[in-house]
Amino acid sequence: MKVPPMLTVAELAARLNVSPDTVRRMCNSGQWPHSRIGRLYRFTEEHYQAIIATPESPEMMPRSQRDNIARLLRMIS
């Protein structure tokens, strides 16, 4: 039986253009599918496809975009 290739946290972060800490945070919160091998997170191609198919969360937005949204929300409040 052939085991599908699995991505590391760093590899997934590079594909998604986010930090490894963001990947870990999204997995810890249960928002992203993943596999655990001991203490390590691993991701199959199916996990990756499910992650990119989900709507973008605020954690995934570039910081400047989040800051702009926060500033606009403060202005209308």
Rank of each mutant, 00 (worst) to 15 (best):
V3Y: 00
P4E: 00
P5Q: 00
P5N: 04
M6D: 00
L7C: 00
L7H: 03
T8V: 00
T8G: 00
E11D: 06
L12P: 03
A14E: 14
A14W: 00
R15Y: 07
N17C: 10
N17M: 02
N17D: 14
N17A: 12
S19G: 12
D21A: 14
T22D: 06
T22E: 10
T22I: 15
R24P: 06
R25P: 05
N28L: 07
S29M: 12
S29V: 11
G30W: 02
Q31A: 11
Q31R: 15
P33R: 03
P33Y: 03
H34R: 05
H34Q: 07
S35P: 03
S35T: 09
I37Y: 10
G38M: 11
R39M: 11
R39A: 10
L40D: 04
L40V: 14
Y41F: 15
R42M: 01
T44K: 01
T44M: 01
T44A: 00
E45M: 07
E46A: 14
H47F: 01
H47I: 03
Y48N: 00
Y48R: 05
Q49D: 13
Q49A: 15
Q49C: 07
A53H: 04
P55Y: 06
S57M: 11
P58V: 08
P58K: 11
E59Y: 09
M60C: 12
M60A: 14
M61I: 00
P62W: 03
P62H: 11
P62Q: 09
S64T: 10
S64C: 04
S64K: 10
Q65I: 11
R66L: 01
D67F: 09
D67S: 11
D67Y: 09
D67Q: 15
I69G: 00
I69E: 07
R71N: 03
R71S: 11
R71A: 13
L72W: 02
L72F: 04
L73N: 14
L73Y: 07
R74W: 02
M75Q: 15
M75W: 12
M75E: 13
M75R: 15
